[in-house]
């Protein structure tokens, strides 16, 4: 199953206009963490906060709604959220930690829970793991080259970046949009993504992404008992607007199609690597 196991799939967006305002799509991650924080389900969450360069996120442990709001929006570069996971439990002393991550980061999290050799006080304190869909990712310098060299936009003047409909788009503060075909961005992808076999964060409690639902909405998979519990409570409390995923276009068919594309492409890379004597397969 390329979409992983899940209990329900929903089309949703945050009910809170503040959150929705600067979020990438449906504001699911920010809204769900904000709810979990209010309810005491988590004491804080590792999220991608603002860094010292434009569009270069740094992981932070957010313990307030304001800090969560700071972290809205997608930046198409790596934010090493897992690097803060032990910091959250040991230095911040949190007992119930939330974390958001790409599929690979959620994989790292689950491995850290089952094989926690260097993860003292982490495994039992993960209260909510949110995953975001991910096709591939760019190192910061790669992103910089795409934006500045190919799109001709200064990093400082970009306000939003977006991938969709086969294009990479950069929006500037003066309202201009600069687009390049996604094809041109492939060479800037980080190599580690090419062996990645997870598109929709199969191991998260709840995973979400824009693919499959109309603009301004997000696709949400609720996967685990933990996820089901939190999601159920948030819906009950009116934190999300939802639609039946079967009624929206393009729907799960597109998610499945893209997941299949990613997995078969990368599976092929793994097979090709096997032809070289010394290239490891991490999944063996």
């Amino acid at each position: 199953m390329v979409l992983g196991s899940y209990k329900t799939a929903i089309c949703a967006r945050a009910a809170d206009q503040d959150i929705l305002a600067k979020s990438q799509d449906g504001g699911i991650v920010t809204q769900l963490f904000a709810f979990a924080l209010e309810e005491g389900i988590i004491d804080g969450a590792v999220v991608a906060g603002p860094g010292d360069e434009p569009f270069k996120p740094e992981p932070i442990v957010a313990t307030t709604r304001a800090e969560l709001l700071e972290a809205r929006g997608t930046r198409y570069t790596i934010c090493p959220n897992m690097s803060m996971i032990k910091e959250a439990t040991r230095s911040y002393g949190l007992d119930k930690v939330g974390i958001v991550g790409t599929p690979c980061q959620i994989q790292a999290l689950r491995k850290a829970q089952l094989y926690p050799v260097g993860m003292r006080s982490v495994p039992d304190k993960i209260a909510l793991a949110l995953g975001i869909f991910c096709m591939e990712n760019f190192p910061y310098q790669g992103l910089e080259a795409m934006v500045e060299d190919l799109c001709n936009v200064k990093m400082e003047s970009a306000v939003k970046m977006d991938i969709g409909k086969g294009k990479f788009s950069v929006y500037t503060e003066r309202g201009a949009v600069s687009q390049i075909p996604l094809k041109l961005t492939h060479k800037f992808e980080q190599g580690g993504c090419h062996v990645c076999l997870d598109y929709v964060a199969n191991l998260a409690d709840v995973s979400t992404g824009s693919v499959g639902t109309p603009d301004g909405w997000s696709t949400v998979f609720v996967r685990t008992k933990v996820g089901e519990d939190v999601w159920g409570k948030a819906i009950e409390a009116g934190y999300f607007e939802t639609k039946d995923i079967a009624d929206v276009k393009p729907g799960l068919d597109l998610v499945t199609k893209l997941a299949n594309e990613k997995i078969s492409k990368n599976q092929k890379t793994i097979e090709e690597r096997a032809a070289f004597k010394n290239l490891r397969n991490p999944y063996l």
Partner: peptide, 19 residues
């Protein structure tokens, strides 16, 4: 065994694990 192998994706887990 990770970076030279083209496998690192920058998740940061190693940094958290280091004592």
């Amino acid at each position: 065994d990770v970076i030279n192998q083209g496998l690192c994706m920058g998740c940061g887990t190693c940094a958290a694990a280091c004592p």
